[in-house]
Design a protein around this nucleic acid. Structure first.
Lengths: 256, 256
DNA sequence: AGCTTTTATTGATGTGGGTCATTGTTGGCC
DNA sequence: GGCCAACAATGACCCACATCAATAAAAGCT
């Protein structure tokens, strides 16, 4: 019995090794050799999955680690000084969170699971040490942060310039693209976040988001039943978002 | 005559050395020893100042360097696929620009001088090499990028949640703070950017910005004559912006 | 199951700020 | 100096989206 259990454990360990992880080219798209991968693997802490509503970290927590999302999803939000919650992002598998805390040594937002979510914890100090040994790792880290800056700037443009329908369409397309990158359907998925979170994130009222879903459905762009979304007309959605289909053209860069 | 000239040149060189630069704790707030400072100094290229309207780099230019602003100011902007210009930021002395290009190896926005502006060019590859030698430099770079992410996220919150008057008040306070950090007046300064740029950046119409200036003046918060601004009531401005006076609370972190 | 709480939808109404149009102001240039 | 181009200010009007209010439908909880 004990031996059976140990076999199970080792299989799980194998399964969660970075080298075998289907996401490793998403979270750290770096061509590491076997030894480097093992080294990276060794500093990563596995944790039990977070339940819906549980916090990965909270605002003002001391910064120690960044986190790669393996499955599930998170929202990050800050609380403004008048007590209002502001969602700063939704984070899907393959993304890193916590990068914004490096500068302050404490977290500036709270990361909360939107569903059962498992993450890899990467202690930042150890990652730094590893950067001394693995050439290119530092540069890769900078690349990832640079990409985050770029994405945030794109988000700023959306918020400054785009109408309600463009914002919602853009968000749905971003989610759709994320699913298809992970070999899931780009057309059919479940939203893990509430209408309130979506509205908050997009800077809109809940009612507006609700009405937009209804309208998109009336126009035949999608079918929606609560969290379940089926996009019928991806091209139409792109037109609605007024972004060219390949909205992430910067991802096709040739990695060094 | 030749000797006099060589003396002048060496004095200029001394003046622009990082070690003597009054901004070095702004652009790279790292406690480097003399040797490290000299090493950093050696990789930095000086260039002739940019004239108003000149581009430091353009969208799609190959990324080679990041730039620290010594004096003057820049705007960065992208051109959306329908040909519209979108200002993504105003950059004042002590700030680094070009960080968002690391991930793509080419620039994603254009940086244009709003007035006569001088910058230090820091070749990125050499900076990386230097990072191998100077402990803490890499971490410092990550810190700076992390801060940029944080600031962009704050900007996203403004755009998503704040009213027109809050946005303009916040921008004016940010500029005011920047001047006071450099030991200039926090109350009186000249805006280097046009109303159109301000409006574009804040996601507002020019007319709205114009009306807001008029209203702020009528309410006694400030006096404005074209580009010249005198803030009469800093506290009132902070109330208008609905941000606690120390809107950059994360900057008071104890650097390692 | 029945209760309460949370979340989503839909309609009626109001308003902040966009759009359009006009005029005033400043600065560059011949 | 006078002309022109860019920039700024102000008013009239309008619409996208917020707000308020009521209802419906899930989701928890005991």
């Amino acid at each position: 019995m004990a031996s059976t259990e140990s076999i199970i454990i080792s299989m799980q360990q194998m399964k969660v090794a970075c080298e075998n992880c289907s996401l490793h080219q998403l979270c750290l798209p770096l061509h590491l050799d076997h030894d480097a991968m093992v080294a990276l693997d060794e500093i990563i802490k596995r944790r039990r999955p977070l339940q819906r509503g549980e916090n990965l970290y909270q605002s003002c927590d001391t910064f120690t680690s960044i986190y790669a999302i393996r499955s599930g999803s998170l929202k990050t939000f800050t609380t403004t000084n008048d007590g209002q919650e502001q969602v700063t992002g939704f984070h899907l598998p393959g993304e890193l969170v916590g990068l914004d805390a490096i500068t302050t040594d404490e977290h500036n937002c709270t990361a909360r699971a939107l569903e059962t979510t498992s993450v890899c914890e990467i202690p930042f100090n150890k990652l730094q040490d590893l950067g001394m040994q693995i050439p290119g790792l530092h540069r890769q880290l900078l690349r990832i942060m640079s990409r985050e800056i770029l994405e945030d700037q794109n988000m700023m443009i959306w918020l400054a310039k785009k109408s309600a329908e463009e914002r919602l369409a853009s968000l749905l397309l971003r989610i759709s693209k994320q699913f298809s990158t992970r070999s899931f359907s780009a057309r059919e998925f479940n939203l893990s976040m509430s209408r309130t979170d979506i509205a908050n994130y997009l800077g809109l009222a809940v009612e507006t988001v609700s009405r937009l879903f209804t309208r998109f459905q009336a126009e035949g762009l999608l079918n929606v039943d609560r969290k379940h979304v089926v996009i019928n007309d991806l091209d139409g959605m792109h037109q609605m978002a007024h972004s060219d289909p390949d909205c992430t053209q910067h991802e096709k860069n040739s990695l060094s």
